[in-house]
Design a protein around this nucleic acid. Structure first.
Length: 690
DNA sequence: AGCACGCCGACT
DNA sequence: GTCGGCGTGCTC
């Protein structure tokens, strides 16, 4: 039985004059601010409802649409309205709660309601072309932990969450637990409480493929009452999960970002695992942040929401201090395992020392690797840069290989002998000579994972190293294959990008080496220190997860930076205090709110003019503490042939900021013809300014 | 965002 | 004389 919050009272008490026309307000998935009114054909009257998906004639073609309200007779007749074409599905796809949530997202992020509703639909209902990757089910590595008794800290945290779930009012928490402290176990037990009370649970993860251990733990506890949204799911199966969630048949739904819109009629608990992860923010319109949507949803549903992280987003920890989130702390690793020790290796040459090339692996790190290998222990090496060399220059004429479409240098890939643009994906064969002068003297500068791989072969010729990055995991199943091989001890070293930072649990790994710990520090973004600290802490968490204690080596040119010093002593609190003081001083979030207006187009002069124009519009309105940063070229000022500029707006409160964006958008729409060839998009609460 | 209508260049 | 370039204007 389908339950729609707002169903047409066909059998209701009010007599309805069926000669009077019915109208439906329809949101279409286009970047248009308004909804459109259509006539409801007679034959659809007893089937259509608020939340229905329909197909409507739109302009000279047809478009999908969503019924956001219905006028069932009684309204003044209107001319020139078209009738709804077809009702796509027999029952409403969205219930009242999801529809209202989508409206909130649309307003908060200044995005079209139709586009929000489109992203809220599971791919299956959207009838989009399905992706070709298979469903990666249980992988037989990692291995769901055997349920064990809880630590004192886990019990304490759980008791608080259980109380909140039982109380059936909105409560929000930050579960701040160091890596390996057993956050997942708290989620599972809290979920048991919610389910025992007849409730449903929504579990959000940053990326489902990297969270299979969490999924397995939930499957172990709840069996087939767990539904998992996976990008590899066929349309049919995705639809199936969604239907079973909506009918209440599923107790638990696990999924990435867009799963926050899954209809769950008796939602009692929401969990946002690794809440600091940037993957929760959608990079395309509608640019919503699933963590924020989850909190709003919990609030409206009178449910409990738990945000979990070992390295909370600065905003989240600030919200603890403001009393908006209750703090639940898991300060120790389970079984009282010591945290790994972290040391810094300063890569800067000593003063007066003979000039020599900075090594990829310092002498100390090399020695430590040999030590671990001789004890039959394993090593993880982290470098956040794929390819062989990110910079290729002719030593004769000085030409640097650059992308023709993007304003970046090309990266040399040795495995394919090609020059690759890491932003647009364009690649061409590298013939070993300069394209300009034909010289054979080519300089490969900078290091990527492939270069490190080569270095490892030279240093440890008899040691097996596996490389885990975007390139080595392109083929279906290779990600799983590499991890399984490493878990089975078929290789001694795992070398990779971001992918090795997240959630991996290999008990035999006792040494983690970060090849370039300050790599992300100088990105032109106010969150670069925060991201660096988070990344280093997460990577460090991969060491010493078994019986033997772990060790972490950070190679750096900037050991004094507070992101590094805090990572060394593994002190989130210390990092937070330093960073929050800087944010306050520089008037950055969370002390202010930001929106980024993005402009792109083929002709740079037009792009600049458009950005400047909206700058003057907003500047004209600069009361209420509104400030403008820019317009300026975006850090990637040209991408795929498009010139990119941006204009950041800062305001003391969201409401002021949103109002400024609404004004900007209206003015943009009004003067659109003057900026032909330029596109403007609003990024509310940007997570990066890149 | 699509999509079509509309007015100016190189082709059978 | 037509095919087609993408400028601009609208979508209940």
């Amino acid at each position: 039985m389908e339950t729609s919050h707002i169903s047409p009272d066909v059998a209701g008490s009010e007599p309805i004059d069926d000669r009077e026309p019915w109208y439906a307000e329809i949101a279409v998935p286009r970047p248009l601010p308004q909804t459109f009114t259509y006539v409801v054909p007679d034959e659809l009257r007893d089937r259509i409802a608020v939340g229905s998906q329909v197909e409507v004639p739109f302009g000279r073609s047809r478009s999908p649409g969503f019924v956001v309200s219905l006028v069932r007779g009684g309204a003044a007749p209107r001319e020139g309205l078209k009738p709804i074409g077809t009702l796509t599905y027999p029952d409403p796809v969205f219930d009242g709660a999801i529809l209202e949530l989508a409206k909130w997202v649309s307003e908060y992020y200044v995005a079209s309601l139709g586009e929000v509703l489109m992203t809220a639909l599971p791919g299956g209902l959207r009838k989009e072309a399905r992706r070709a990757s298979p469903p990666p089910e249980a992988r037989g590595l990692g291995l769901a932990q055997i349920p064990r008794s809880l630590s004192a800290a886990q019990r304490k945290a759980l008791a608080v969450v259980d109380d909140a779930i039982t109380a059936q009012v909105f409560r929000s928490f930050l579960l701040y637990g160091v890596t390996g402290s057993g956050k997942t176990e708290v989620y599972v037990r809290a979920a048991e409480t919610a389910v025992a009370a007849g409730g449903q649970v929504l579990m959000l993860v940053p990326e489902i493929a990297l969270s299979f251990q969490v999924v397995e733990r939930f499957r172990l506890a709840f069996g087939d009452r767990v539904g998992v949204f996976h990008s590899g799911l066929t349309a049919r199966r995705r639809q199936d999960v969604w239907r079973r969630a909506r009918s209440g048949e599923l107790a638990i739904v696990v999924g990435a970002r867009s799963a926050v819109f899954t209809p769950l009629p008796s939602l009692r608990l929401l969990v946002v695992d690794e809440e600091h992860e940037g993957a929760y923010k959608q990079a395309e319109t509608p640019r919503y942040h699933a963590r924020e949507v989850a909190i709003v949803r919990a609030h409206r549903a009178g449910a409990t929401v738990v945000l979990g992280s070992a390295t909370p987003a600065l905003e989240s920890y600030a919200n603890v201090q403001r009393g908006k989130l209750g703090l639940l702390a898991l300060p120790e690793r389970i079984d009282a395992r010591p945290r790994a020790s972290v040391v810094v290796h300063d890569l800067r040459p000593r003063e007066g020392a003979p000039k020599e090339r900075t090594p990829i692996l310092s002498r100390e790190l090399t020695r430590k690797i040999s030590e671990r290998l001789s004890k039959k222990e394993q090593v993880i090496l982290f470098l956040n840069r794929r390819g062989y060399a990110p910079f290729v220059q002719c030593r004769h004429c000085g030409l640097v290989a650059r992308c023709h479409q993007c304003d970046v240098s090309l990266t040399f890939h040795r495995t394919s002998d090609s020059l690759v643009c890491h932003y647009c994906g364009d690649r061409k064969t590298h013939f070993g000579t300069c394209e300009n002068c034909g010289s054979l003297r080519i300089l490969f500068a900078g290091i990527g994972t492939q270069r490190v791989e080569e270095e490892l072969q030279a240093l440890f010729p008899r040691v097996q190293a596996l490389r885990l990055d975007f390139d080595s995991t392109r083929r279906v199943g290779s990600y799983e294959h590499i991890l399984r091989a490493f878990g089975a001890g078929e290789a001694e070293i795992l070398l990779g990008t971001q992918m090795v930072a997240r959630g991996l649990d290999f008990p035999n790994v006792t040494l983690v080496g970060v090849i370039n710990a300050d790599a992300g520090l100088n990105l032109p973004d106010f969150r670069s220190a925060e991201r660096t600290f988070q990344l280093l802490t997460q990577v460090a968490g991969r060491a010493g997860r078994g019986e033997r204690p772990g060790e972490v080596v950070l190679q750096t040119h900037y050991p004094e930076h507070y992101a590094l010093t805090a990572a060394v002593v593994q002190d989130y609190e210390a990092f937070f205090l330093k960073e929050i003081a800087l944010r306050r001083e520089r008037e950055y979030p969370p002390f202010t709110r930001m929106a980024n207006l993005l402009f792109d187009g083929e002709e740079e002069a037009r792009v600049i003019r458009a950005a400047e124009w909206l700058g003057t519009i907003i500047g004209r309105d600069a009361r209420k503490g509104l400030t403008l940063l820019g317009p300026a070229p975006q850090p990637l000022s040209r991408l795929k042939g498009k010139h990119r500029w941006h204009l950041a707006i800062r305001a003391p409160h969201h409401a002021t900021l949103r109002q400024a964006c609404v004004v900007a958008l209206e003015e943009w729409e009004r003067t659109k013809r003057e900026h032909a060839g330029v596109r403007m998009t609003i990024d509310m609460d940007p997570i990066d300014l890149l």
